[in-house]
Structures are given as C-alpha cells and as structure tokens.
C-alpha cells in the first residue's frame, strides 16, 4: 500500500475511533488518535497476518500494552477485515465483544488481553521468546504509551528482552507527551526515553508517528537489526486529526458529546476528501 492509501485508511480509522467512543459515551480518544497511523501501518503494511486465519501459528503478533487506546486497534482491525466496521459502535456496550480494553477471548485477532499498564509488554516478550525457542520467523510488536513506561514492569521486560537478544521484538513507544494528569515531563518524567532503552540493550530508532515514510524507515530498520530488540520512539500528537483534541491531556479519557462528535467527524470527512483529491 502506498502512503496515500495508508493515509486514507488512517483517516477511516480515526473516524472509527470517534464514532465508537461517541457511541460508547466513554473511552480514550486522545491516545487512540495519536496511534492511529501506527495501527494502520502495522495492520496494512508491516505485519504478516491474515484476518481470515487470525490464529495462524506463524503469524506476526501484536500486543497493545497501552490497552486503553483499543478503539484505534478495533478500527484498524475492522477495516482490515477481522470483523464488520459496523460493529465499532458497539464498543463498551453490554454483550459486545469490543470490551473497553482488549480481550483475546472475545475477539479473534487480539493476541493478548491487556490494559493494565506495563503488563502487555511482558507478554509480548514471552511471545518473542517462544518464537526464538521454536526457531520461528514471526515477529512480535507491542505498543506502549509514554506515560505507561513509568511502570516498573516495563523495565523488567526490557531488561529480559535485551538480555535475551530478542531481535524479533519491536517495542513502539507512542510519545505523545501527555498523560491523564498532564505533561509526562511534569508528572514524572520518563525522559530520556531513548537512552533508557539503549541502556537496556535495545537498538533505538526515532520516528514521526504521523509520517508513513518515517514509520516505514523505522520498521525496516528494526527488521534489519540483528542481535538486539528494537525500540521505536514514535513522536506523536495526542488527539491527532481532530483539531480541538490535539495536544489536550483532557481528551485522554473523555468521549465527545453530540456537538463535538459532529465537529470531529466533519473535520475528518474534510480530511478524507482532501486525500481523495491527491
């Protein structure tokens, strides 16, 4: 898929996020939107997956360690064909498989239940370790929030992954700079993020989370890196794509009301039309 096509998909993913969170009257739009291009790149370009055979043993795996931004993952998976796009608006509703945080027992294609911060990355490390033990070629991707890396377990997992030289593992940090209580640098700074991962024996790549060329270069570099896991520090904008949500910590975990929903969807429709003109 070329980058214009990816951008179009990402715009649809953003619409799916807004529609789902609005319908649920709850959820996390900010971090879902900041990761929308990453989800799109992973599910439409990077990963070896088959929506028709979601449990294929040799598939690449994805663990959403920052599980609260699952609306973005659901939207990407729906557009990739794992389940109907119409299902997105059942998010967080009774009886829906689309739980508030990822649940592998409810959705085929979710590789690990997650949401309690810091835990998903350990499971991803376990999957990567299994791949090495069994001499499999599959790769494992896990997406973390930059606030999430305040959790100590992340560094336990990083120490193990570096120690075991798990070069089939890619840790992506969605570096939107904001957490619930404000700027991550003010709350309890995790910076420098790159030097931390380097110290844990990772290869570190910086990327622009909203530029598909940059994402491609980063994931290609990760794939080419042997003998150590890769951490991609993806600089992003929280709320990206919806003007009034961008760079606002207050949109971390709040759903848009009807008026805000209309405004957000109008902006995304317009962005989509602009992409079609290209």
């Amino acid at each position: 898929m070329n980058k214009l096509e990816l951008a179009k998909v990402a715009n649809e993913v953003r619409k799916g996020i807004i529609a789902a969170v609005h319908s649920a009257k709850a959820g996390h739009p900010g971090g879902s939107l900041s990761a929308a291009d990453i989800y799109t790149y992973l599910y439409f370009e990077e990963m070896n997956i088959d929506p028709k055979d979601p449990k294929k043993p040799d598939r690449d795996r994805f663990v959403l360690s920052k599980g609260h931004t699952v609306p973005g993952l659901y939207a990407a998976m729906a557009h990739r064909g794992y389940f109907p796009v119409e299902k997105l608006i059942t998010l967080r509703k009774l009886g829906s498989p689309l739980q508030g945080h990822p649940c592998m027992q409810h959705v085929d294609g979710i590789d690990m239940s997650s949401g309690s911060l810091g835990q998903g990355v350990s499971a991803a490390v376990g999957m990567a370790l299994a791949g090495k033990m069994d001499n499999k070629d599959y790769r494992v991707y896990t997406l973390l929030g930059d606030g999430e890396i305040q959790e100590g377990q992340v560094w336990e997992a990083a120490m193990f992954a570096g120690h075991r030289k798990l070069d089939n593992l890619v840790v992506i940090v969605d570096n939107n700079g904001l957490q619930i209580d404000g700027d991550i640098a003010d709350v309890c700074s995790p910076y420098p993020i790159d030097k931390k991962f380097e110290a844990f024996n990772f290869h570190v790549v910086h990327a622009d989370a909203h530029d598909f060329d940059s994402l491609k270069a980063a994931f290609d570099e990760a794939r080419a890196t042997k003998g150590m896991p890769t951490a991609i520090i993806a600089k992003s904008i929280k709320g990206k794509g919806v003007s009034f949500m961008e760079n606002e910590a207050s949109w971390h975990g709040v759903a848009p009301n009807d008026e805000q929903y209309e405004k957000a969807m109008a902006e995304l429709e317009k962005a989509g039309e602009a992409l079609c003109q290209k």
Partner: peptide, 16 residues
C-alpha cells in the same frame, strides 16, 4: 522480576 515472569509465561502460553 516476578511480575515480568508472569507476563512472559502468559505470552509463552499464547503460543501453545
């Protein structure tokens, strides 16, 4: 690192 160990075990279990 017991907490990480639990997660690694979980990840291993997902692969069979």
């Amino acid at each position: 690192a017991e907490c990480n160990m639990i997660g690694i075990a979980a990840g291993l279990a997902t692969t069979g």
